[in-house]
């Protein structure tokens, strides 16, 4: 079981008059088989939080710890943009993040490419794929290392509605079956309510404003009354926090 412990996390960029506070005094524990969504207006530090949790950025103050059964957890990261190596084929992009090049690993990569409906595109270069296809390769790459914690930064926002729906279902299955932890950033409250059992609301200036538990059974149908009520509840929180304007 993975655990994330965040204590007094503070992150600033720049100095003097250029100083930007991206995260302010965030305290947060995420444990076990959670699907946590992070919502909030643009620029409230969502990507920064994921960058710190995955080791890309370092905190200005405070500590973060990600462990899995006592050892350092392996994170998988789906970025806001696909971030593929343009000079490597799709398959090689997946292989790039693997620890070994065994046949098992290759088969696993192929399986996840098939999951995102790109099983026949392994030999293409990213430049030969559409933007949505590239994003799906990025998703397959993160899945393919079968991480202890999966971080996703608005992974479906560039995809068409049908593909996004299919992948949401796939993501839910994976989470349900593997009992892994998912930390999911989104702008879409409906998506957050449909997928997660916990929603963190961030406000401008990088403050954690609200922590909402959603204990409805899966699968959740947006048309379902209880799901609609939960969504309305989160949106009302947004209104109270005056987040909707942005």
């Amino acid at each position: 079981m993975a655990e994330i412990r965040i204590k007094n996390l503070h992150k600033e960029f720049g100095v003097g008059s250029d100083k930007v506070v991206a995260l302010e005094d965030v305290n947060l524990d995420i444990t076990g088989h959670s699907f946590v969504s992070i919502v909030g207006p643009s620029g409230c530090g969502k990507s920064t939080l994921l960058n710190i949790l995955t080791g890309i950025e370092t905190p200005t103050n405070g500590t973060v710890e990600i462990t899995s059964d006592g050892h350092v957890a392996a994170p998988g990261y789906v970025f806001q943009a696909a971030r593929l190596l343009p000079w490597r084929t799709v398959t090689d992009n997946l292989m790039f993040v693997q620890e070994d090049r065994s046949d098992d690993t290759k088969k696993r990569c192929q399986r996840y490419l098939e999951m995102v409906q790109l099983g026949d595109k392994g030999d293409k270069f990213p430049g030969e794929l559409s933007g949505g296809m590239q994003q799906r390769v990025g998703i397959a790459r993160a899945f393919s290392i079968e991480p202890d914690v999966l971080f996703m930064d608005e992974p479906f926002s560039h995809l068409d509605a049908i593909t996004a729906r299919a992948l949401r279902r796939e993501l839910h299955h994976m989470w349900d079956e593997t009992k892994k932890m998912v930390v999911f950033v989104t702008h879409d409250v409906g998506e957050a309510v449909e997928l997660s059992n916990r929603i963190l609301v961030f406000a401008k200036g990088g403050r954690l404003e609200d922590d909402i538990q959603i204990d409805l059974p899966f699968p959740r149908d947006p048309a379902d009354d209880e799901v609609a009520v939960a969504k309305a509840h989160v949106l009302r929180k947004f209104e109270e926090l005056d987040l909707l304007a942005s």
Binding site: G55, Y77, V97
Partner: peptide, 12 residues
């Protein structure tokens, strides 16, 4: 930088 960061996050 975006690709180097990506590689770093995947512990490459």
């Amino acid at each position: 930088k975006d690709l180097l960061d990506m590689a770093k996050s995947f512990r490459v």
